[in-house]
Design a protein around this nucleic acid. Sequence first.
DNA 1: CGGCATACCGAATCTTTTATCGGTTATTGT
DNA 2: ACAATAACCGATAAAAGATTCGGTATGCCG
Lengths: 118, 118
Amino acid sequence: MYTRKIADDPDCGLYLAMRVLGGKWKCCILDAIRRGMTRPSEITRSISEASPRVIEMQLAELLYFGMIEKSQDNETEYPKRSEYRLTPLGESLLPILAQIDAWGLAHQAEIQERLAEI
Amino acid sequence: MYTRKIADDPDCGLYLAMRVLGGKWKCCILDAIRRGMTRPSEITRSISEASPRVIEMQLAELLYFGMIEKSQDNETEYPKRSEYRLTPLGESLLPILAQIDAWGLAHQAEIQERLAEI
DNA sequence: CGGCATACCGAATCTTTTATCGGTTATTGT
DNA sequence: ACAATAACCGATAAAAGATTCGGTATGCCG
């Protein structure tokens, strides 16, 4: 987990939400879990563009913020078979994620056109 | 405008939307414009925690992605009195932004508690 | 036994983003 | 005339974030 050196605390819901969701793959991870991928290896494979280490780190952050929960934390049992699931807090975000996703897809062409020129 | 060295193009609406919206203050800027602040100086003052330079840069990016439009681009006229307004594309995001904002505020206490411990 | 898989963590390195500072241009106020 | 304001831009410093690589622990399969 990264730690920031610069403080910031605006009472802006957008800002707060972005602090929780703002990571290269956090939304995609939540979406993968929603689609039924509970195990880390599954999630990692489903987002093959991302480096596995980032998935690990972002899973840890989502866990820290209470968006997901981890079962099978039994350290002595092998093979480790962790499973991540959405908490009520995480679930409460699903309708919004669905809308963001729909918006992104609806404007995919325009966005990618712009991204291509950067 | 920064240019990335690492390519990425997943057909994931969430990812695309985050590329457009993912910036420390982009959502807040859109919200400020929605609330009626059209001039750069107003926007900057309304988000006093942010550095003015970042607001400028993120305004430029929102403009680039067609989320906002700029009037008074007359370079020879002084004092410059630019005004930024939401485009239809930007407006189409407002309902979603409102929901994200509401979510962030609804969970403000939990989120800030976590942020404080980082 | 050797190699593979799972689930992690730590650290070095590199990229991306944000912050800081100074400069430009021209009008308005004192 | 001088300071202030507005709306920028460019360069550089600093911070945040992502990637890469290697290591841990253990069980399974041939």
